[in-house]
Amino acid sequence: MRRILAILLENEPGSLSRIVGLFSQRAFNIETLTVAPTDDPSLSRITIATVGDDKVLEQIVKQVNKLIDVIKITDLTERAHVERELVLVKVLAMNDKSRTEVKRIADIFRGAIIDIGKQIYTIELTGDADKIAAFIKTLSYETEIVEVVRSGCVGIARGEKALKV
């Protein structure tokens, strides 16, 4: 089952390598990983999307928590949460028809065209993993996809619950 883990840790050199090393050392999966400092620059927040059964997930959470740099870890998928990922898609837009179709699809998915070349449109879109997959699939029916870059997902709990020190 797919899970999204949010980790708050000390923003120190080597902290990220310890997390990544732990996953490979213990044969845990990483589907996506994002990392950036928080509003407090001494802290980093990592979001990891992973897959595993309950037993594996319990070990992942415990093992990550055991790292000295880690302050908190939470499984966002345990309760109501919001998940977002950013994708940039570069597509061929060779003629009027494909330009109109690409624009229409971008509008329907509430994406934005952020760069135009002679024969290229670049579209930006945010959404959860399902929406992004649907968007890329729909685009591929109408034109040729040149390049896709995904940020990996970030997530936050709904309501009052917050991951902070």
Binding site: G14, S17, R18, I68
Partner: peptide
């Protein structure tokens, strides 16, 4: 880096 999987913690 060499010792990362076999230490409780390390410092640079």
């Amino acid at each position: 880096g060499c010792s990362r999987p076999i230490v409780k913690h390390s410092f640079n």
